[in-house]
Structures are given as structure tokens and as C-alpha cells.
Amino acid sequence: MTLGTQAQTVTVRVPGKINLGLSVGPLREDGYHELSTVYHAVSLYDTVTVQPSDSWSVHASGPWGEEVPTDERNLALVAARTLAKRRARKAKVHPVRIDIDKHIPVAGGMAGGSADAAATLVGCRELWGLDHLENDLLEMIAASLGSDIPFLLHGGTAIGSGRGEHVTSVLARGELHWVLWAGEGLTLSTPEVYAECDRLREAAGETPAAPQPGGALMTALRRMDTDEVAAALHNDLQEAAISLQPVLAEALAAGLDLGARAGLVSGSGPTVAFLVGSQTEAIDLSVGLAANGPTGDIVRAVGPAPGAQIIHQRTSPEPTRARPDTDRPGPLGPVIG
């Protein structure tokens, strides 16, 4: 923000995520499962705009806009109110209108709601002129609201532990090309998928061990070798997601038959992510899936992508004393595990 100005609207772009590896451990006392996951942000973005208003509200548009709750269940609204409550005594905060242009599938395993919450935290921090040094507060609020939100503040590729909220960045040079398939009308409840995973394990007599990140995947990411990454992808929730939505098996088979290097359900599903070797392969697979796969929305994406970033803001004169330019908010720094 420049000297003597105050933001009136702030627009933030935020990516969706897929899980390159997801190991699900035992159920914890707090009701969550112990996890070890490798997050990977991809270039499928929501944009979130915040601006001052007389009352708190959420409005959604875009391809998935009709699926977004705009009442008290909306995680972006919860994030804004939580940040306002925590900083009300130290800064002049006010209700905001939140506009979400929704391109990340809803209830699709790509953390779309968490992405919007992360974007809202970044946007409101700028809108309300909160000190850039309060990154720790944003991290704390993000972790308290959802397991995926801390990662989406940063993006890139990272290991998640605990219930997923503790993130440590992974050095991964280069890029990976993806084709994402989201079945028409398909949604999956994350708690339902975890419950199905527990049921299947119990039926098979399996006792989950403490989860650990896969060494083969870490090595493949350091080299960013597509075939090595493809061989190391895994998701402990995939069997449960397919059990609840069998069409996912049909989509996976179609993508692999059409030449994908690998395919897996993203997180708790039902979005399916196919890894390919290049943009040309991504185009070919997209066309093939549209013609021969089960009905669904198909998009191409590249990862890793940056986390929540301010892409536009409109300002107006500020009547109060301007802060020094060195105190202005800036991009979030690297993740520290």
C-alpha cells in the first residue's frame, strides 16, 4: 500500500491443492486422524475480493458458485470474523463483503473452501491495515479453522503432518503437468470418506501405523522426474472414495488407458488428478477424456503454484497518519516447519 492511501477493495488469487501422497494413521483423541501428506498447489484458482460493508456477507459466482454456501457455514466468512475478533482492539476493523469467483470444485478434495478462507485472511489483513509482522497470527488462525488452510497461505509443495496443519516446504524444482477430472454432480463429505476408510480397514483386520512421508516420493520431487513421481503417488483414502463413488474407478481407468502417467483421487475426492509429461500430453488426455471418459468437468493445470497472493487492490485517500513504507504488508514468507 502506498503512503497516504487505504485499501477499499482487495482481490486475492488462491490455488487448489492435490495430495501427491496421503498416509492416514490412527484416529486421535480429538476425532481427527494422524496424517502424513505431501501437498501440491496447482494452477486452478479461485479469486476472492473483500471490501468494507455495513454487514458481513458472502457472494459466489463462477462455474462452481451455485455450490458455495453463503451463510454461517462459509469458511471464508468464519475466517474474516475470526481475524476481526482477534484484532479488534489493535486495529480498526469492520464488516466485509466477500465475493468468491469459484473455479475450484466444491467438496472435490482440492480444499476449495480452505483456499477461500486463506485468501480471505490475506485480503482482510491488507484491507484492515494489519501489520505484516503478524504472519504468526494468520498461521495460528488458519490452523485453528482447517487442516489445509495453513498450506494454502503458502502454496508450492509441502509436507503436512499432525492433522495436516503443520507444514514444511519441500524443495521441488521444475513443474508437473496435470489433468483434473471432476464428475458432474459428484461430491464427497470428508468425514464420510474417513469413516469409510476406517470401516474398510476394520473389515480387513488392518491396524494403521504412524504415518510417515514416502522416501521415494521425496526423491522423485527433488529430481522432478515425471515418471518417478508417477510411480510414487499414493492416497490411503482412494479405496474409500471409490467405495462411496464407484464412478471414480471408471474415470481412473479411462485416464490411464488414454496415456496418463498416473492417476489418483485427490484427497478425500471425488476430483481425480492425472499426471502427464507435458502440456501436449495434457491436451491430448483432456480431449480423450471428454470423448471417452465418464461425464465430468476437465481442466488442465500445472504445479507447483504459489499460495494466496494479492493481485489487485483499489485505494482511496487515508485521512490518518500513514505508516512507513517499510511496514506495509507483503507476500507471505517461506514455510517454516
Rank of each mutant, 00 (worst) to 15 (best):
G162V: 02
S161G: 11
S55W: 01
P246L: 01
V276Y: 10
A301E: 12
R261Q: 14
G155E: 04
L171I: 07
A203F: 00
G31D: 03
S55T: 12
S53L: 02
P329C: 04
P15Q: 09
I311G: 06
R323M: 11
T5F: 04
G307W: 06
D257N: 14
G109T: 08
D257G: 03
A115H: 05
L258D: 04
G185I: 05
D325Q: 12
E66R: 13
L152V: 08
T47R: 11
L127M: 03
G288P: 07
A7L: 09
G277Y: 09
N135D: 15
G214V: 00
R223D: 08
A260H: 12
H94S: 13
E67C: 07
L217W: 12
P334I: 00
E196S: 06
G293A: 10
R314M: 09
A119G: 03
A91L: 03
L252Q: 14
T49W: 06
C197V: 01
L285P: 12
P191T: 01
Q51I: 00
L217D: 09
P213H: 01
A158P: 15
T5W: 09
G263I: 08
A107Y: 03
P329T: 07
A76S: 14
E239Y: 00
W128T: 08
L188Y: 04
G205I: 04
L20A: 05
R323Y: 06
A322R: 14
R300T: 14
W181E: 03
Y32H: 13
G123F: 01
L285Q: 13
E239H: 13
G156N: 05
V93C: 04
G65V: 07
T47D: 13
T5Y: 06
P63Q: 09
A209V: 07
L289R: 11
A216T: 13
N74S: 05
V42D: 10
A60P: 14
Q51L: 14
T207G: 00
R125Y: 00
T9V: 03
T315M: 04
C124E: 01
D30C: 02
R87N: 02
K85Y: 01
R28N: 10
P95I: 02
L137Y: 07
H103R: 14
R261N: 08
E250C: 00
I104R: 06
T47C: 07
P69N: 05
G205T: 08
G108I: 01
D225M: 00
D297H: 12
T37K: 08
E228L: 14
V229Q: 13
A251D: 06
D30K: 03
D284A: 15
E206C: 00
Q313W: 11
I141A: 06
A251K: 05
M140A: 14
R328C: 01
R223A: 14
Q245D: 05
V96R: 03
R87L: 12
A88W: 11
G307L: 07
T226C: 10
A301N: 13
A251N: 06
S23I: 02
D54A: 14
Q6W: 05
T315F: 02
S266Y: 01
V170H: 10
R13N: 00
V58G: 11
A80N: 09
M1C: 05
G146R: 04
G293K: 11
T315N: 12
A80E: 04
K85D: 15
A282P: 10
A41R: 02
R314I: 07
V272H: 10
R199P: 01
